Amino acid sequence: MPIAPRLSDSEAAALRSLAERENRSLQDVAREAIREYAENRSRTELLDQILDEELPRYAEALERLGQ
C-alpha cells in the first residue's frame, strides 16, 4: 500500500541532503529509515517484555548486588 508522509520543510531538506550525499533515491533512504525504526522498536519492545517478566525473579539478588 503506497503512502505519502507529509514532511516539514526541514525534514524534506534533511532527507534530500542525505539521499544526495549517498547517491540514493529519496524513497530508498526513507524506506531504510522506516525499516530500521521498526526493527529497533521491535527489539526495544521485546527487551521491555523480557525485563518485565524476568526482573521480578532476580529482584532479591539484584537488590543485594546494589548494596
Results as ranks from 00 to 15, higher is better:
Met1Ser: 13
Met1Ala: 10
Met1Asp: 13
Met1Pro: 02
Pro2Gly: 13
Ile3Cys: 01
Ile3Leu: 01
Ile3His: 06
Ile3Asn: 00
Ala4Tyr: 13
Ala4Trp: 04
Ala4Thr: 12
Ala4Phe: 06
Pro5Glu: 05
Arg6Met: 04
Arg6Leu: 13
Arg6Thr: 15
Leu7Met: 10
Leu7Gly: 04
Leu7His: 03
Leu7Gln: 02
Leu7Cys: 01
Leu7Glu: 03
Ser8His: 02
Asp9Glu: 15
Asp9Met: 14
Ser10Pro: 01
Ser10Phe: 08
Glu11Phe: 04
Glu11Ile: 04
Ala12His: 06
Ala13Pro: 01
Ala13Asp: 15
Ala13Asn: 09
Ala14Gly: 04
Ala14Val: 06
Ala14Thr: 07
Arg16Ser: 13
Arg16Met: 10
Arg16Gly: 00
Arg16Leu: 13
Leu18Val: 12
Ala19Pro: 01
Ala19Ile: 04
Ala19Tyr: 03
Glu20Lys: 07
Glu22Leu: 15
Glu22Trp: 07
Glu22Ser: 08
Asn23Tyr: 11
Asn23Pro: 02
Asn23Thr: 10
Arg24Leu: 15
Arg24Asn: 09
Arg24Phe: 03
Ser25Gly: 05
Ser25Ile: 06
Ser25Arg: 00
Ser25Thr: 14
Leu26Ile: 13
Gln27Leu: 11
Gln27Thr: 11
Gln27Glu: 14
Val29Glu: 01
Val29Gln: 00
Ala30Met: 05
Ala30Val: 04
Arg31Pro: 01
Arg31Phe: 12
Glu32Val: 08
Ala33Thr: 03
Arg35Gln: 13
Arg35Tyr: 08
Arg35His: 11
Glu36Thr: 10
Glu36Lys: 10
Asn40Glu: 15
Asn40Val: 07
Asn40Ser: 08
Arg41Cys: 03
Arg41His: 03
Arg41Phe: 05
Ser42Tyr: 09
Ser42Arg: 08
Arg43Thr: 10
Arg43Gly: 10
Arg43Gln: 12
Thr44Ser: 04
Thr44Gly: 00
Thr44Val: 09
Glu45Ser: 11
Glu45Tyr: 02
Glu45Met: 14
Leu47Lys: 02
Leu47Val: 14
Leu47Gln: 05
Leu47His: 03
Asp48His: 05
Asp48Phe: 04
Asp48Lys: 06
Gln49Pro: 00
Gln49Met: 10
Gln49Lys: 04
Ile50Ala: 11
Ile50Phe: 09
Ile50Tyr: 12
Ile50Leu: 15
Ile50Lys: 09
Leu51Ala: 12
Leu51Gly: 02
Asp52Thr: 07
Asp52Cys: 07
Asp52Lys: 09
Asp52Pro: 02
Asp52His: 09
Glu54Val: 11
Glu54Pro: 00
Leu55Met: 07
Leu55Asp: 03
Pro56Glu: 03
Pro56Met: 03
Pro56Arg: 08
Pro56Asn: 05
Pro56Lys: 03
Pro56Ile: 02
Pro56Val: 06
Arg57Gly: 06
Ala59Trp: 05
Ala59Glu: 11
Ala59Leu: 08
Glu60Trp: 05
Ala61Leu: 14
Ala61Lys: 11
Leu62Cys: 12
Leu62Lys: 06
Leu62Thr: 10
Leu62Glu: 15
Glu63Ile: 05
Arg64Met: 08
Arg64Ala: 15
Arg64Glu: 14
Leu65Phe: 13
Leu65Gly: 09
Gly66Trp: 14
Gly66His: 14
Gln67Glu: 15
Gln67Trp: 11
Gln67Thr: 08
